[in-house]
Amino acid sequence: MAIKRGIVLMNLGSPDSTSVKDVRRYLNEFLMDGKVIDVPYLLRLLLVKGIIVPFRAPKSAEAYATIWTKEGSPLVVLTEQLQQQLQQHVEEPVEIAMRYGNPNPATAFDNLMKRQPGLEEVIAVPLYPHYAMASYETAVDYAIDIHKKNKYPFKLSFIKPFFDEADYIKAMAENIRPYLDETYDHILFSYHGIPERHLKKTDPTHSHCMMVNDCCDVASPAHSKCYRHQCFVTTKLVTDALHIPKEKFSISFQSRLGKGWLTPFTDIRLEEMPKEGIKKLLILCPAFISDCLETLEEIEERGKESFMKAGGESYKMIPCLNTNPLWVETLDKWVKEINTGNREMIL
């Protein structure tokens, strides 16, 4: 007899509106997460609520206002659209949950129990291709905490990071391919930045990440949780699939919040590239499945302004996978593999 399952697509989250009040509430929840700003609680409290959020909330509210749609936050709307597209392919009820903001996992779990009486297992799909303490790990821990706290009767399992999964790579490559018909000098893979210390904290060997020369190229069990290595792997697999020569692409890291973050920095590279003869740029953000503030405002708007002001001639951001049909097919395939026992899960 088939197990009664439900699916939850987990994404980062968004403020409920562009009001400073809602943005402040969202930023407080996001930045008070000890896996995002990993300093002692009292220091984090002082930094976040005393310094960062009071200054950042009004500016972030303005930034959100430039990308907000009549339906609401692009990230939430796109995740809902992905849910609807996937639901057309699978029998299991599909809900969405956000790590920060609404809807939270409890809402998703409760909805699944209403839609699927006798629910036995929930499969959560964190929409983060790469493992990072501040993204995949915190989303998983948050869902587990809510599951335990509310004493839900079903088992909770998670799909692993899929940075090197063949179907994901194919979807990424085909999402990029149409843009290669345009004349371009270079493709920049801009990944979300994290502090280098996070790599050391998540290193299961405690002796490899950022401690061995060319650590991302030297085989190690650390790579199972190494964000930087996984970003490199995704880039190589995608560019190999598209036959893009090495001199035509590079990697950078965006959204830095301070010193000691992964380099090179996207904002700096965008100012440097025109001076290096790169005048026509394609840019994409593979750390994100759904377009959001960090892609639409930071990269598509401000990034373009910086690049063109520095002497660039053309600049095009390639959208995230969003509801790309191949990506929906990939999720559909993974759900069917779960049902047949052919997909390894994290319990």
Rank of each mutant, 00 (worst) to 15 (best):
E137A: 14
T234A: 07
C216Q: 11
E182P: 04
H186K: 15
I144A: 07
K246L: 14
I176F: 10
H147K: 06
I169E: 01
Y152R: 13
E271D: 13
F154H: 13
N150W: 04
H147V: 01
E196Y: 08
V212K: 10
E174A: 01
H223I: 13
D145E: 14
K155N: 13
E165W: 10
I159A: 11
H147D: 05
I251A: 04
K200P: 00
K280I: 00
G258H: 08
A139R: 01
A143T: 10
F232Y: 12
H192Y: 08
I146Q: 14
I159K: 10
E174N: 14
R269T: 12
Y191L: 05
F163W: 15
H243I: 03
D217W: 02
F189K: 01
R269F: 00
P153C: 09
I187Q: 03
T235H: 03
I244A: 02
F265K: 03
Q230Y: 02
A139G: 08
K149F: 06
E272R: 13
D181W: 01
E272S: 13
H208R: 02
S255L: 07
T263M: 11
W261H: 06
E137P: 00
F232S: 05
R177E: 12
T138D: 08
K246P: 08
L257D: 04
T235E: 02
D185I: 01
H206S: 13
T235W: 04
G193V: 12
S220Q: 07
L282F: 06
L199C: 12
I268L: 09
R197Q: 14
V212S: 09
D167I: 00
Y142M: 11
L188Y: 09
P195G: 10
E271P: 06
T234E: 02
I278H: 12
S252H: 07
C215T: 08
H147I: 03
Y179M: 00
E165K: 13
Y184M: 03
K246A: 15
V218D: 09
S250A: 13
E137K: 15
A143K: 01
Y184A: 11
I146L: 14
H206E: 13
L156I: 07
R177H: 06
H206Y: 09
S252V: 01
Y191T: 12
K151R: 15
D185C: 06
Y227V: 12
I251D: 05
H243L: 01
H229Q: 13
R269V: 11
K275Y: 09
P221C: 07
T234M: 07
R256Y: 06
K225D: 01
D167V: 00
V233G: 00
